[in-house]
């Protein structure tokens, strides 16, 4: 579906694409918003969104502005993206037919963010605590320094960037295969997704992650229920870094998925789903 969402960079509203997991939004159900990582789009969540949509949630897996099927220009920094989330939630509330999102946590949404999306969820929770009932941070650390070679390749739309991200982003499962979806390739799928994105998308996203320095400060301000979900083989946001961040959040739990890299929602889709289910049902 397409949502008309106010922009944080101009006065105009922009059309934002969001997958809803095959169900329409309902004001009777809690809103669950999925935020993808740098250079990616909503399709990375297909093994979680459809389940939640059929199990009691209004689901929005968005394409950030300038990504995937969404209009608009790329947001340049994590803080800007975080400031845009309330506009997104407003638009979702409007389209679901009431002036508030109801459900078990009335008028509040939950955010599930991966990598860049996790930083956005973290920053948003620190800035707009009144909007959120919980956050789930997948593949997260307070800072996400990006290797200069990768930054440069991504800025230049060099295919090397796609190979580096898919290589570093996957653990053993991703590299060898035997993926959860029969016959699908995680490395090939990741490379195709990144290379099909509009020019500059990955570069801007990685630069935003690299520049973000407010993680620990933001963590200190988060008071909603938080899950930090980590992969034991994650090279991009090592589990130790996720634990350090979680230690700064008042109400945070951690969950480590074994034999898993940075792309846990694809590499270990069921374990990711179970961890999200457990967390969301407890909040």
């Amino acid at each position: 579906m397409k949502l008309n969402v106010a922009s944080v960079t101009s006065a105009k509203k922009i059309k934002i694409f969001a997958a809803t997991g095959g169900k329409e939004l309902s004001s009777e159900l809690p809103l669950l918003v999925f935020l993808h990582g740098a250079g990616m789009d909503h399709t990375v969540w297909n093994l979680q969104t459809r389940y939640f949509a059929y199990h009691g949630y209004s689901v929005l897996a968005i394409d950030f502005p300038g990504h995937g099927r969404s209009d608009g220009t790329l947001l340049q920094c994590i803080e800007q993206m975080a400031d845009w989330i309330p506009e997104l939630i407003d638009a979702a509330v409007e389209i679901s037919g009431k002036d508030g999102v109801s459900g078990s946590n009335s008028k509040k949404a939950s955010l599930v963010g991966h990598s860049m999306g996790a930083l956005v969820a973290l920053e948003c929770a620190s800035r707009y605590p009144e909007l959120l009932s919980s956050i789930c941070l997948l593949g997260v650390s307070a800072k996400m320094p990006v290797h200069p070679v990768l930054l440069e390749a991504a800025a230049n739309n060099d295919p090397l960037a796609y190979d580096l991200v898919t290589s570093w982003g996957h653990g053993t499962t991703g590299h060898f295969g035997r993926t959860p979806v029969p016959g699908m390739s995680l490395i090939g799928g990741g490379r195709a997704l990144l290379s099909s994105a509009p020019q500059g998308t990955l570069g801007v996203g990685l630069a935003a992650c690299n520049a973000y320095q407010n993680g620990l400060t933001a963590a200190g301000k988060v008071d909603c229920s938080t899950l930090c979900l980590m992969g034991s083989e994650d090279k991009m946001t090592p589990p130790k870094q996720g634990e350090k961040l979680a230690a700064e959040i008042t109400n945070a739990k951690t969950h480590l998925i074994q034999d898993c890299g940075h792309m846990m929602m694809l590499e270990k889709s069921d374990q990711t789903l179970q961890a999200l289910k457990a967390h969301l049902s407890s909040t």
Partner: peptide, 10 residues
């Protein structure tokens, strides 16, 4: 799929 550089195969 991996040998062809594809995203998946049937």
């Amino acid at each position: 799929s991996a040998l062809e550089g594809g995203t998946g195969a049937v």
